[in-house]
């Protein structure tokens, strides 16, 4: 077992276990925390794949931003000690069934296909390259998605403010 495999399996285990815990835990704050672990482990996978910048974003934005946002909203809307009511078996059973069926289907398809990895070495991506690509509008340039995402963020910001603002009435 190579170190890559070991690290991958370690992160996978963390991801799978804490994913399941996230969706089953009855304490909402714990669920948020488990989600944080999942996201951090995902960042670990990115590190493993040598996407350092991506991993940093994952940590900063997901783990640092979104999870904090979620925890804030939890604190605004729930008691910390509150135990969430669970759905009935009539709801859980078909959902679990369909999820397992879907997963089995996807995995069986994946296993049927033999992916051949690329060979040869490449430079690890650096931040400079990423920045140039983001503002480049030639081949392999991402200026347009970058602009689109900027507008989307602006719209989301305005929308969030408008929605969450206290009404006058």
């Amino acid at each position: 077992m190579t170190s890559n495999q070991f690290m991958f399996l370690l992160f996978s285990a963390v991801i799978v276990i804490f994913s399941i815990l996230t969706v089953t835990s009855r304490r909402i704050l714990r669920a948020a925390t488990f989600l944080l672990f999942v996201l951090v482990a995902t960042a670990g996978l990115y590190f493993l794949l040598k996407y350092n910048y991506l991993a940093a974003i994952q940590l900063a934005l997901y783990a640092g931003g979104i999870v904090v946002l979620i925890i804030f909203s939890i604190l605004l809307t729930s008691h910390i000690n509150e135990r969430l009511p669970t759905s009935g078996l009539m709801k859980k059973l078909p959902a679990a069934l369909i999820a397992i069926l879907g997963a089995a289907l996807c995995i069986s398809v994946i296993l049927q296909y033999n992916f051949i990895g690329a060979v040869g070495t490449t430079e690890p991506t650096n931040v400079k390259l990423i920045g140039e690509s983001l503002i480049n509008y030639g081949k392999y340039g991402y200026a347009l998605p970058f602009e689109v995402i900027s507008v989307l963020l602006l719209a989301a910001m305005i929308g969030a403010i408008i929605l969450a603002k206290k009404r006058k009435d």
Binding site: P94, A95, I98, L101, G102, L105, V109
Partner: peptide, 16 residues
């Protein structure tokens, strides 16, 4: 959502 997901899965099953 349940109907949608099961529909998608079943369709995928059928077509694959």
């Amino acid at each position: 959502a349940m109907v949608f997901v099961s529909g998608a899965v079943i369709l995928a099953l059928i077509f694959i």
